[in-house]
Design a protein around this nucleic acid. Sequence first.
DNA 1: AGACTGGTGTTACCGCAAGTAACGTACAGC
DNA 2: GCTGTACGTTACTTGCGGTAACACCAGTCT
Lengths: 215, 215
Amino acid sequence: MDIAQRTTDQQTPAEQRRRELLEAADRVVLRDGPKASMNAIAAEAGITKPILYRHFGDKGGLYRALAIRHTDALLAALRAALDAPSDRRRRVESTLDTYLASIEAMPQVYRFLMHPAEESHQTEQGFDVGRHSAPLLRRMGEELGQVIAERVDLGPGAEAQARIWGHGIVGMMHAAGDWWLGERPCSRADLVRSLADLLWGRLAQAPDLPGGPAF
Amino acid sequence: MDIAQRTTDQQTPAEQRRRELLEAADRVVLRDGPKASMNAIAAEAGITKPILYRHFGDKGGLYRALAIRHTDALLAALRAALDAPSDRRRRVESTLDTYLASIEAMPQVYRFLMHPAEESHQTEQGFDVGRHSAPLLRRMGEELGQVIAERVDLGPGAEAQARIWGHGIVGMMHAAGDWWLGERPCSRADLVRSLADLLWGRLAQAPDLPGGPAF
DNA sequence: AGACTGGTGTTACCGCAAGTAACGTACAGC
DNA sequence: GCTGTACGTTACTTGCGGTAACACCAGTCT
């Protein structure tokens, strides 16, 4: 099997191996949740730790690779929902629903992605706050912000506004989804409708209840 | 010093000690960030590990105690902002600003609270998804939901709606704040205004840009 | 053929943090 | 004086991330 055949056939054997390892990692994360150890993943793949480290550097590297895999898949689904040929409200609802359906379908993987526990080599900066935390959320926030900037006319300061909104909406979706996944207080459709209502300003429009601020 | 004096004076010596330990923990978390070890905390308090474990059970217990402290403080501040005698928009803005000012003032503590790394005793349930994850967010979400339910007239299904919105808004605030803290793309006031605008439905009101879905 | 190289795999170890056991010590109340 | 209880210690176990050192098996160059 020479190079020409390899490129048409599939990837180089190393990449093939990497895929297999990632799939094994996926399986064990699915089974054991976020606390999956490198040993367990290696065992699932039928090998031992050092090989994992040769392929991914450190646990963060494996995490990153897994995250990119799933994030790409999720983002593709979200983009599809975002690009549907209907009105904005419907697109927003279907995007929310897509996200929620995804986390509902594989909560273990989702939690692994969201709570990485981070190690960080401490980049000699006493205050590298910000580089931590779920990159999945960041990516989704950035992408959504971009979509908003591309499609909605926000007037002056549009770009900054769109990014803020992207991250804010993603955070809203995430927190509400996380809570909902734990308590299941209502159907997915109800949740979607409520969140869309929130984005549609129903909080601002609703009247006060009698007996408000008591002084 | 008998019981009568103790209760008027201050707490029992054990509680006093506990406070001291928590303050030491606070200091080291402030200094070392979320990766603070039990050893480091014990050293800062001038004692050794087992005492910490006697007081707090395990690291989760210490984390929980710390979280409750800070969450209580933060929630008190938020409630104050929420209860200010002005119109709803102003109250929302001041609440957002209070939260952002807090995380800006002590990002290390904030990150420690948000990324606990969880251990979990694995409650023989293969799927205890939900009990994990930052309890701070959950609590803020619940409280905000309660405030909304108390003060805003949402008609039928109000309670469920209010809880969803509580968690959603808190998540929005958190994600946007987290991102903003890392990149500082704008002033705090700008961020507050943009987020309030989002909640006020400006996303729904804004017109499309020319050249929308291009498929 | 035989040495050289690169990739795959191993065992055995280090360092470090969580958590625990066992022991020591002061000081209450009988 | 003796005993329980709370405070404190040292020294250990366990488990995980990460690494070093070595072994094996292609091909490949001379």
